[in-house]
Every structure is written in structure tokens, then in C-alpha cells.
Simulated scan of single mutants.
Amino acid sequence: MPHRYLTTLTTPSVEAAQKQYGSYSAVQRMISGWPTDGVLGDDEIGFIAERDSFYLGTVGETGWPYVQHRGGPPGFLKVLGVEGGASQLAWADFRGNRQYVSVGNLGASAKVSLFLMDYPHQQRLKILGEAHSHDARTEEAAPLLERVALPGYRAQVERIITVSVRGYDWNCPQHITPRWTEAELAPILASAGYDLDDRR
């Protein structure tokens, strides 16, 4: 089976660029050897469960791409299972600055890309999919809201975003600068006798 992530992105313009810079044959060999499609494996599911943020790309009627950072407690992006031959992702979308650019764009095109980073381990996972917005105030959204709820997290859920995965790909670690969050550093610093609360 062809690598759906790459075949989705391979347009005549992309192929022309690959031919111009001499990578077309190598990319074709790579595509033919990668079996991944819209079903995430155990490595991808585990990786997603540990993330506390990702970047979301959408496109509106003007054709301009828009990238937004989404964040929450680790595991706020949920893998709900497989439906129709594709993994299903979902997250509770909270009230923010009320511009609604990403949500509005989904009304024009369901196509999205998710970019998930693990800076300490220099890993990144890209996901292509089709997303839909579900108003959290509706009765129909109640079962979905229960599955993505974050008990104890103080934020107002306005909607649930679901994504049907169409393809995914891991990138090489080159040029990913390792970075650590305070939560990741805390146990290491504590074992060295440094208390982060001392700086406050």
C-alpha cells in the first residue's frame, strides 16, 4: 500500500520540484516502501498520549494557511479508536481569544494538518486528516464530550474537534533543538537539591 501521507502531498508542482533538485527517484522508492496509512500504530498512539501541545494547520476560503498552537494537560489530544479504516482523534477545544479563525476555516475545508513535537527527544510527528467541529452545548455532543473531558482542568469547553486521520509521517531529528518544560526538569533538578519554588 502506498504511503498515504506522501501521496496526499505529492502534487505535480511537488514532483516538478523533486525532479529539479534530483530527489524524485529516491522519494518514489521511499513511498513504495512505507506501508502506513490512516491507522496509527502503537508508537504513534503512545507519542500522542504524552503530548501537552501541538500545532494545527487549516486553510480558509482565501487559500491562506493558518497555523495555531493548541495546548492542555498531557494526553488532552485523544485517540478514540478506528472507524472506517482511519484512526479518530479528538480534543476539547476551549474558549480562547474568540477570533475563531481555525474553527471558521473548518467550515470551508475539513482538511487539516497536526504537527506534534517532542523537543527533549528530538522527535516530530505529522498527521493529515479531515476535521469537524462539534458544539459542546448540544445534546448530540454529550457522549463525545465525556470521552475528551479533562477532570479538574479549569477551562470552558466550547466545542469538540474530531479528526479522521488520512496519513501520518515521522520526521528526522535534524535541527530540532532539545528543550524541556519546567515539569520535565523538576524531578531532575529536585534530585540535585534544587527547588524550583525557591526562585519565586
Rank of each mutant, 00 (worst) to 15 (best):
G84P: 01
G75K: 04
V101G: 02
K126P: 12
E146K: 14
G81F: 04
N105T: 02
G72W: 02
P143Y: 09
V82L: 03
G75L: 09
F115T: 13
N105M: 00
G104T: 01
D135H: 07
E130A: 14
V103R: 05
L116P: 06
L80W: 04
V112I: 14
K126T: 13
P120K: 04
Y119I: 08
L106W: 01
E83V: 13
G96M: 06
N97A: 00
K78L: 01
Y100G: 02
R98L: 09
W91N: 01
F76E: 05
S102Y: 00
F76L: 07
F115Y: 12
R95Q: 15
Q123G: 11
A149Q: 11
L145R: 11
R70T: 04
S109Y: 04
G96A: 09
V148T: 08
G104S: 01
S133M: 11
L89W: 00
A92F: 04
P73Q: 14
A90T: 04
R147I: 07
F115P: 12
P120A: 10
Q122G: 07
A110K: 13
I127A: 10
Q123F: 10
S102F: 01
H134D: 05
D118I: 12
P151Y: 07
R70Y: 03
G129Y: 08
V103G: 02
L106C: 00
G71Y: 07
K126F: 13
S87A: 10
L144P: 04
V79F: 05
K111W: 15
V112E: 07
V112C: 10
Y119V: 12
Q99Y: 11
G75P: 01
A149G: 10
E140S: 12
P151R: 08
L128W: 07
D118S: 13
E140L: 06
R137A: 15
L145F: 08
A142C: 10
L145K: 09
W91C: 02
G84W: 00
A131S: 06
N105H: 02
G107C: 02
F76S: 05
L116W: 05
G104H: 02
P151H: 06
K111Q: 15
V82P: 05
K126V: 12
G84F: 06
E130G: 13
L106I: 00
K111N: 14
A110I: 01
A92K: 01
G85R: 04
S109T: 09
S133Y: 11
G75V: 07
A136T: 12
A141P: 09
G84R: 02
H134G: 07
M117E: 06
Q123E: 14
Q88M: 10
A108F: 14
V101M: 07
V103S: 11
Q88R: 13
K126N: 14
P143E: 12
Y100D: 05
G129N: 08
H121Q: 15
V82T: 09
D118N: 15
R147Q: 15
L89V: 02
L106E: 03
L106G: 01
R70H: 05
I127Q: 08
P143V: 06
G107Q: 00
A108W: 14
S109R: 09
V82G: 03
T138V: 10
P73L: 14
E140W: 00
A108R: 13
E130T: 12
A149K: 11
